[in-house]
Nucleic acid binder design. Sequence first.
DNA 1: GAAACATATCGGTTTTTTACGATGGGAGTT
DNA 2: AACTCCCATCGTAAAAAACCGATATGTTTC
Lengths: 109, 109
Amino acid sequence: MTDVDALAALGALAHPTRLDAFRLLVRHEPAGLSTGQLVEASDLTQSTFSTHLAVLVKAGLVKPEKRGRQMIQRANLDVLRALMLFLAKDCCQGRQELCEPLLAELTCC
Amino acid sequence: MTDVDALAALGALAHPTRLDAFRLLVRHEPAGLSTGQLVEASDLTQSTFSTHLAVLVKAGLVKPEKRGRQMIQRANLDVLRALMLFLAKDCCQGRQELCEPLLAELTCC
DNA sequence: GAAACATATCGGTTTTTTACGATGGGAGTT
DNA sequence: AACTCCCATCGTAAAAAACCGATATGTTTC
């Protein structure tokens, strides 16, 4: 993951509507949700939400898939993992003791 | 870490200047760098960089400390860890197999 | 083919962000 | 006290983001 990719992912998640939508999609893995269902879950217009969704898709965090006349949206956890690894690399620069607390907490899952 | 905190941290890192500055500070832990040194490392005006720095501080990612007539800026790795944990919680919702690849890669450090 | 449906895109307005020079205030120096 | 240095803040202009209604595109249904 390059800096540009990480900036796109960070920016995509840095908005309440998009963060909510992404987390909703994560909770609905691997089935996904239609765009319309996501619009309903938000309190925004269909067109406004569509542009938010486009930001998530452009960042690679969401992968759309055609199904009949509707689009099924699915979270791309690979990109989320790549983003976390990107951040972790900063955290761990040479000093492993800095990230050990993180690993300890992450073993919760 | 609340949603509001996470959004602030994501937004703070979602800018090339601020991401660069934060990573530079991480690499200079635990000594930190003065604001002036950070300005030099950027290609921006002192005033412009100051507002960027304020965003990082507001998000808690950077902790300023007075030293004489200059400010020493230090990265707050606790907030970075909290942010990563916040993202990981989404990733791991109930399904531990989703985060195992991440943990495997993180053991690099 | 016409109608209904799901989603994307186009204009346009409002709000927010970014960037700069200039100014101000606190902290050392002479 | 006057001066210099470091940094924050103010005022402002330009750029980007957010939001909406209206329209366009492609798909199923009748």
